[in-house]
Write a protein that binds this DNA or RNA. Structure first.
Lengths: 200, 200
DNA sequence: TGTCGCATGTAACCCGTTACATGATTTC
DNA sequence: GAAATCATGTAACGGGTTACATGCGACA
């Protein structure tokens, strides 16, 4: 079997370019963290790697915008071949699903540590997921993805006026919110259970 | 900064040895898939790598059990140093949380594909997560983790008589079930939304 | 006859992470 | 004066995946 020419993260970056219009690698990272955080993670380096890969595949084009006293901005945009690759990928069944959560891992083996440490970690987890819930709720009302062509003078603005958000984006946001609520409810339950376990 | 001596997956394997008692690498893989599937993934190779790592750290010991006409069974067990490492890890705050889900990724960029392909992927996702829900429900009633010493003649049996399952294991199972239910509910909602979108 | 379970791994690859490097501008 | 933002990356490392290799016994 040959190695695949592209991976889920490749299509994540490609899809963002399709979704939000041309952008720099730097902007892609910020968009990625906002929009794809419920289903994938990416570092800045990885995004630059994927851009290079897609340039070689002919899925994206780069256009240089000169700047003084700063590195030139390199604006990437999806090509026709990129659009075809994205559409073809859509027809294939997904193969990857995985949650990796160190808090759950520590909780599972809770009997080998102290309840105090566990409870501290749970409280921290509650704060963390409350932040995520808040972020997704703000996403829901603030980020309007639109297939606008690139505005040469400005950068993509995640806080632009809400134009009519894509139905798939709305669905994903609903999922993200539902997931965080489920997680938070369960954390609260776990906290109470462990506190009760302590009093005996 | 130095590289860490161990990673979440290391503690996952170590915790399993603490939780279920001594086992072979082969058995660890099966246990991992049953018990840790809600919070981490592991391949067989990775488990062998972690066993090697932990042997060098002195966290586990290996005991060879000879067999005819099959490779010798190598039974790994946690050492006292391993128990200390597990306990110390419990006191540190968790740092990693990430969901990676190709189905969600395809759905987010659904507007660049056909609704038919999307719906097919969603139906497949429903089957997949129904399976997971079922597996967690069976886990809940069937797998009783106990800190039993290793029985030299037999292998760890996931279907042994239910002794009184660990409260943390019960909590995790409840989480896994709640997560799958949330996911399934949302998939159904997404399916209906996209079907309605088609009729216009 | 062929696939599945048991049981050991190794080799190759690369995604993903961490750390490093540069440097002007703005904000505290 | 320090830290954050903008904006580009590269280098090194290793976790994680896929594929390969071996070989017996049981079961369809």
């Amino acid at each position: 079997m040959e190695r695949p020419e592209a991976y889920p993260i490749t299509y994540g970056v490609l899809g963002l370019l399709a979704f939000c219009g041309p952008m720099t690698g730097y902007d892609l990272k910020r968009m990625f963290d906002h929009i794809l955080s419920p289903m994938w993670g990416a570092t800045q380096s990885q995004i630059y790697k994927e851009l290079k890969r897609m340039q070689e595949l002919g899925w994206v084009e780069m256009q240089r915008e000169e700047q003084e006293s700063r590195p030139d901005r390199k604006i990437y945009s999806m090509t026709e071949a990129g659009r075809e690759a994205l559409a073809h990928w859509q027809t294939q069944p997904p193969t990857f699903f995985q949650l990796r959560d160190e808090l759950l891992l520590k909780l599972l083996f809770g009997s080998f540590g102290s309840p105090e440490a566990l409870l501290a970690n749970i409280r921290e987890g509650i704060r963390f997921h409350e932040q995520r819930l808040l972020a997704h709720r703000q996403n829901a009302s603030l980020i309007p993805p639109a297939n606008q062509p690139h505005q040469p003078s400005g950068r993509p603005d995640p806080y632009a006026a809400p134009a009519e958000p894509d139905i798939y984006f709305r669905l994903i946001t609903r999922f993200a919110i539902a997931l965080e609520k489920t997680y938070l409810n369960w954390l609260q339950e776990a906290q109470e259970t462990i506190e009760q376990e302590q009093e005996d």
